[in-house]
Write a protein that binds this DNA or RNA. Structure first.
Lengths: 110, 110
DNA sequence: AAGCATATACCGACGGTCGGCATATTCAAG
DNA sequence: CTTGAATATGCCGACCGTCGGTATATGCTT
């Protein structure tokens, strides 16, 4: 799973949100690092809907603008949970190796 | 940074390895989930070398087969460390939301 | 002799993201 | 009162990185 996809699922894990709100939420989550392009977002939303990981929650019209709200499906929740575990495991392994590495070289050893 | 790239850097964070050994190491790291394609690996190695994240450590000939060993540069180590932190943060946020979600719906609340 | 593991490397295809644009409304700044 | 930014969805071509296959070569196993 690519990062933008993961971030979109994470955004929707909170509560149902419409597309543009997802863009903002992802920006918040990543501390401003990732601002999804509209093209990326809506394409991913369509794809994820096709894969059954998200679904349309409801549609609203606010100030004559359409808002389509999406929510995570059970499959999407499961998928996000699995991916989260993977991320954690990989981070742990990388960290362990980086630490061992610094112990070897970086260490101002004696 | 994409997952294969991250895994390659992680593999090289351990010790200098030649291409094929990286493929095997990544397979080990991911519990068999990811077996990098040769095309992916060597293309990524070239790219990472171009970006200055890895460099050629040495070359050996074992059983008349060339082995080109790569190692992480300081920039590569830094890059991997940063990416690892990101992964951790994102995993933490996703986990928090998933937990909150289960508390709301899953929870057999009373 | 065939097949698998080792080892590097190229190639076309493909998927997903990027960046830009179109559309439409509301609000603030000039 | 017009320009620009923010909100909101969506399409499109370009691009990057990976996939899958192939080529090349050697050595071991069956």
């Amino acid at each position: 799973m690519n990062e933008p996809t993961f971030l979109i699922l994470t955004a929707l894990a909170g509560e149902s949100q419409h597309g543009y709100a997802v863009i903002e939420d992802v920006e918040r989550i990543t501390g401003g690092r990732v601002r999804l392009r509209a093209g990326t977002l809506y394409a991913a939303l369509d794809r994820l809907r096709g894969e059954g990981l998200i679904e349309v929650d409801r549609e609203e019209v606010v100030q004559s603008r359409l808002r389509r709200y999406y929510r995570l499906t059970a499959a999407g929740e499961q998928s996000l949970a699995t991916e989260t575990d993977r991320l954690r495991e990989q981070a742990t392994i990388a960290e362990r190796r980086l630490r061992a590495r610094r112990a070897d070289f970086g260490g101002a050893t004696a």
